[in-house]
Design a protein around this nucleic acid. Sequence first.
DNA 1: CTTATAATTTAGATCGTTCTAAATTTTGGT
DNA 2: ACCAAAATTTAGAACGATCTAAATTATAAG
Lengths: 346, 346
Amino acid sequence: MAGRGKSAGRPQRVTLHDLADHAGVSRATVSLVLRKSPLVAAKTREAVLESVRALGYVYNRGAANLRTQRSHTIGVSINEITNPYFTELTAAIQRAFLKHGRVVFIANSEEDPARQDDFIATMREYNADGLAICPSRGTSRETLRRLKKQGVACVLVSRDIGGSGLDYAGHANEAGMCEATEHLIGLGHRRIAMLGGNDLVSTGRERRGGYRKALGLHGIAIDEALVVEGEATRSFGAATVRRLLALKDPPTAAVCFNDVIAFGVMLGLRQVGREPGRDFAVIGYDDLAEAELWVPGLSTVRNDTRMLGETAAQLLLDRIENPDAPVRRVVLQPKFVIRESSGGQR
Amino acid sequence: MAGRGKSAGRPQRVTLHDLADHAGVSRATVSLVLRKSPLVAAKTREAVLESVRALGYVYNRGAANLRTQRSHTIGVSINEITNPYFTELTAAIQRAFLKHGRVVFIANSEEDPARQDDFIATMREYNADGLAICPSRGTSRETLRRLKKQGVACVLVSRDIGGSGLDYAGHANEAGMCEATEHLIGLGHRRIAMLGGNDLVSTGRERRGGYRKALGLHGIAIDEALVVEGEATRSFGAATVRRLLALKDPPTAAVCFNDVIAFGVMLGLRQVGREPGRDFAVIGYDDLAEAELWVPGLSTVRNDTRMLGETAAQLLLDRIENPDAPVRRVVLQPKFVIRESSGGQR
DNA sequence: CTTATAATTTAGATCGTTCTAAATTTTGGT
DNA sequence: ACCAAAATTTAGAACGATCTAAATTATAAG
């Protein structure tokens, strides 16, 4: 009596049709009940809901999406989820969309544009309403312009790709790094290294630009030997600071592309018997939860990750709502946090 | 000429129908081409693929799933993605499924069984082929049994829920923690604290059990004041070790539920002027990338995360293939790694 | 040139929902 | 009791793919 299909084999999925039969109404009415339409009479609604319970019905969202041409699904592509900054950002983005009743699909592109492209293609095949992208290194402007041209709602988060023509939510990286660097200059440092980041990614360009700008403002010549590109890992920070300390005119301080590198620098200093904050000044970027706990506490530039997630979500939802609105760019101001790792007056 | 529908409004999606018209064949043939069927003649295939390019066709996976009753989609529910162990595990699981051509849906339940249930419900609504679950704290056995009874393919990863009747892939936590604790005992420690974990989660029960077992094996009485439940955070580790050191008979060593807590312990020791590895022995659990870099290097129990991800994926894929096979449990052996934080002979 | 066989192609039903437009029932005023 | 208006319910056609079973075309053997 239950399950229409063949009596042999797998249990058939319970459908609207089954519910309709069971409750003695039409498919259309059942559909209205499930969508909480006010059109249907209270008594009918009760009967249908009772059938739902009785048959153990599971709504088929895929079928509904096919019909409505809307999926309420958002794809989120993250360049490197094992980086704690992006882990926090991902959680923030997810929370923000969840609050707006969207289902979120997360993928980790691991800095590989091909994987990112695959994911974007898959999400389009699933008819996602929109995409939030932290573009992996090397993402081409053309890829993104094509998305825009094809009418895919899209927002770039954290990292910008110039000329993509997409909405963007990010932080004011140049200003943040400039302030951090000027702080060190104010403490008397002249040989300041800049560790991590690169010019292939906007955040790298901007933070490295902020560093250069600060030195320029105070008439300090830039020694390219102290500007080191690198991965956002602790081991890069540790190895690099050890190498720089071995130079004949070593730096006395370092600003880092992010906190993870700064933690590495502090570990590296200890490995060679130097104490961060006393023998060498260190500044990070992001203000991860861990920064405050270190001994010495890490001076760093705080990005409001949760706010960025919410901003990105709002931009994307607006874009979905109104595909032809003018492009928007929101840049959040960071906050420089002074702790002990940058040392006192020297 | 392009796009069948109304000439006004949004661009219509290109469908198999459009491709068929454009290429002068039937819908069925186009479908065969897209699915790389060998049945179709080379010349026809070329023509269709040319139409795909010409019209900018995007495959509609939702429609296909509706028809085939298979989604090639896997839902992965993670209890806390900001914990780096789970971040790594998530990445490993994703990679493993990707290798098998599955699309992976990731959600962060943040230790909230309600969010986990929501996600599971959503995945069922999307007709996911299977679920990989790192159950959040407080997940009930009944929830999981119901899933099994309803024929949902499911594998538990890392954390076990007794009596769920589901496949499980995890690590031998008791053995790992027992070995670590015995190492400290061998070095002469008698007052050994156990920090973090709790009995609400299998990994906590097992690791704490391993600690108790080791003490028992060597006739050391357990001082419950030294066994502290807690969150897997650095701040818990730091605060707790400071508190324990203030006891009148303080511990001389600590084994930690995981590396993150152990890092916190090392930071906490420094905050009160003690040097980990020299003044106090510390052992972690997980062997995160960071463990090796610390000064002193963190002694810890290594879990092979990538292997766990692959194992879980294989169990789930087998289960999907063969729903009625007997339940399997795979437990991977960890490896104890000795570095400097556990100190030498005292 | 048949004819049997193999290789291709296809019409039409189907998956489980929602939508449109119309049919039916209920309600309330006279 | 009647009728208009409001409230509720519904049949049947979508959505965009795949499947089944059969039709068509090409190839080879006699």
